[in-house]
Amino acid sequence: RFRLSPAARNILEKHSLDASQGTATGPRGIFTKEDALKLVQLKQTGK
């Protein structure tokens, strides 16, 4: 289970993504908004 920032949680839910597909870069291993946006971008480019 990942620790998600509220913004990251919202983005992941909106795009039906799972945090385990990305890398948490925030302090103390928190999955940040920026991490979520990177994951969305990867999904949109098909990689």
Rank of each mutant, 00 (worst) to 15 (best):
V40R: 05
S5E: 15
H15S: 04
L37V: 11
S20Q: 09
D35G: 03
S16E: 14
A36N: 05
F31L: 06
A36V: 01
A19K: 03
I11K: 06
A36S: 04
K43P: 04
E34G: 08
L42D: 15
G26Q: 04
A7S: 13
A24F: 02
P27I: 03
K47G: 09
G26M: 05
G22C: 06
K14H: 11
E13R: 09
K14F: 11
T32I: 00
S16V: 02
E34M: 03
D35W: 01
K14S: 09
R1D: 04
E34W: 07
L37I: 07
D18H: 06
N10Q: 15
K33M: 08
G26E: 03
G29V: 01
I30H: 07
S5M: 13
K33A: 12
K38Y: 00
L42T: 10
Q44V: 12
G26S: 02
R9M: 09
E13A: 09
L39S: 12
H15C: 02
G46Q: 15
L42S: 09
T45V: 11
K43M: 10
T25F: 01
T32W: 01
L17E: 07
G29R: 04
A7K: 11
L39E: 09
P27S: 10
G46Y: 15
K38E: 07
V40E: 04
F2Y: 13
K43D: 10
A19N: 07
L12K: 04
A8H: 03
P27F: 02
K33Q: 14
I11W: 01
S20P: 09
V40K: 12
T23G: 08
G22W: 01
A36I: 00
S16C: 10
Q21A: 13
S20V: 07
T25E: 01
N10P: 11
P6G: 02
H15V: 04
L12W: 01
I11H: 07
V40Q: 09
Q41A: 15
R1K: 08
A7M: 06
S20E: 14
L17R: 00
G22D: 03
S20D: 15
L39F: 01
D18Q: 12
A19M: 13
K38Q: 11
R9Y: 04
N10F: 15
L39Y: 00
Q41Y: 02
G46I: 01
K33H: 13
L37E: 15
R28W: 09
L17H: 08
Q21H: 10
T45E: 14
A24I: 03
T23C: 10
E34F: 06
G22N: 02
L17C: 09
T23H: 08
I30K: 08
K33L: 06
L42R: 12
S20W: 01
V40T: 01
R9V: 10
K47E: 15
K43Y: 10
A7P: 01
S16I: 00
E13V: 06
L4D: 14
G29M: 05
H15R: 00
K43C: 09
A36Y: 00
K33N: 05
S16Q: 14
R9H: 09
K14E: 15
G26H: 05
R28S: 11
S20A: 13
I11G: 06
Q41K: 15
E34I: 02
D35N: 00
K38H: 11
F2S: 09
N10G: 13
K43T: 14
N10M: 13
E13M: 02
K38T: 02
L39K: 03
L17V: 07
G26L: 04
R3C: 13
H15M: 12
A36M: 06
P27H: 08
L42W: 09
L4H: 01
Q44L: 12
S20M: 11
R3T: 14
A19S: 09
S16R: 12
E34Q: 14
P27M: 03
G46R: 12
P27Y: 01
L42C: 14
T45M: 10
A24S: 09
E13C: 05
T32G: 04
G22K: 02
E13L: 10
I30Q: 11
K33T: 13
S5Y: 00
